[in-house]
């Protein structure tokens, strides 16, 4: 399958390795996507550059109201992190729903983003959290908004043959802010969702002052329902506002017909249900009616 398996000791070394094998070397993190993709020859690579032993990429920490998550952090670590649990619960929920325990022990949140599936659970929460990714490339490092990383199904604008993502960051939720994650799948676990949504909203003085709604897979990339979110802002966080936003989200979503995942009609309707449920839970949490990790 691969000819060479390398362990760089620094980000710079990783980039050098990629450069040394132009176009034929690729980053690997947990390998839960790449291994199968290479085996099935969907993603060619002769050399893989394993970033899981580079010092300094395993952090989950808060600085100045921003949470930073390193490229080695797995879904299991995100789900179990007390920091994420209290300041970004929606992400913990999302990562906790990926695959089964073995996959979560190995698969990384960053890998989930670079793999660029419109149904990825962890990535969906990052959209709702308005995350950014730090990209390390030949010319240096830069922060890129999450949406800018997506170019289509399975297509990330960061080419893992040339560059890598070193960490993610997003604002920690403040008082009056909360999120929630919902998914619908053909069985209860160990399965990609036929639909998922992550929402975050902030309530101040009895009014919704900010909202973000991310939905997948209803387009070629994770879909941010801007109109629906905008419709919430300035309103009291009541059932009517939530229902209206959910309806708008459903109207904007364009799931494709899928033999295995379900019809357009069904999934479009379900967008409304899931978004409504997620918003309702987020409102309850933001109003302190429910702990960030509690159930509805």
């Amino acid at each position: 399958m691969w000819d060479e398996y390398l362990f760089p000791q620094s980000v710079d070394e990783a980039l050098e390795m990629l450069e040394a094998h132009v176009g034929e070397a690729r980053i690997i993190a947990g390998g839960t996507d790449l291994t199968l993709q290479s085996q099935r020859r969907q993603v060619p690579a002769k050399v893989v550059v394993d970033i899981t032993r580079i010092p300094g990429l395993d952090h989950v920490e808060e600085r100045d109201g921003l949470i930073y998550v390193g490229a080695q952090v797995t879904h299991a670590q995100v789900a179990a992190s007390p920091l994420i649990g209290s300041l970004a619960g929606v992400l913990a929920e999302a990562c906790g729903s990926v695959g089964g325990p073995q996959i979560r022990n190995v698969g990384t949140l960053v890998g989930n983003v670079v793999n660029a599936l419109p149904a990825a659970d962890g990535a969906m929460a990052l959209f709702a959290m308005d995350a950014e990714a730090e990209v390390a490339e030949g010319t240096g490092r830069r922060w890129a908004p999450i949406a800018s990383l997506y170019a289509g199904v399975g297509r990330c604008t960061v080419d893992s043959c040339e560059a890598m993502i070193t960490q993610l960051r997003f604002p920690a939720l403040r008082d009056g802010e909360a999120g929630a994650f919902e998914r619908l799948a053909k069985r209860r676990t160990l399965i990609l969702p036929i639909l998922n949504t992550a929402v975050v909203l902030g309530i101040d003085g009895g009014k919704i002052e900010k909202a973000r709604i991310a939905i997948g897979p209803v387009a070629t990339t994770p879909f941010v329902a801007t109109e629906a979110a905008a419709a919430l802002v300035g309103r009291a966080p009541d059932g009517a506002a939530v229902a209206e936003a959910a309806k708008l989200a459903s109207e904007a979503a364009e799931p494709r017909y899928s033999l295995l995942r379900g019809s357009t009609e069904y999934r479009k309707s379900m967008v409304e249900v899931l978004v409504r449920r997620a918003l309702t839970r987020a409102v309850a949490r933001a109003c302190g009616e429910e702990g960030e990790n509690g159930n509805s």
């Binding site: 398996y5 362990f7 690997i28 390998g31 839960t32 291994t35 199968l36 893989v48 394993d50 899981t52 299991a76 325990p101 073995q102 996959i103 022990n105 190995v106």
Partner: peptide
């Protein structure tokens, strides 16, 4: 499933060199 440093992993998709 096997354990690597105590964590469960699915060894059929786990690169041996890891």
């Amino acid at each position: 499933t096997v354990l690597v440093d105590g964590l469960s992993v699915t060894s059929c998709i786990y690169p041996a060199l890891k």
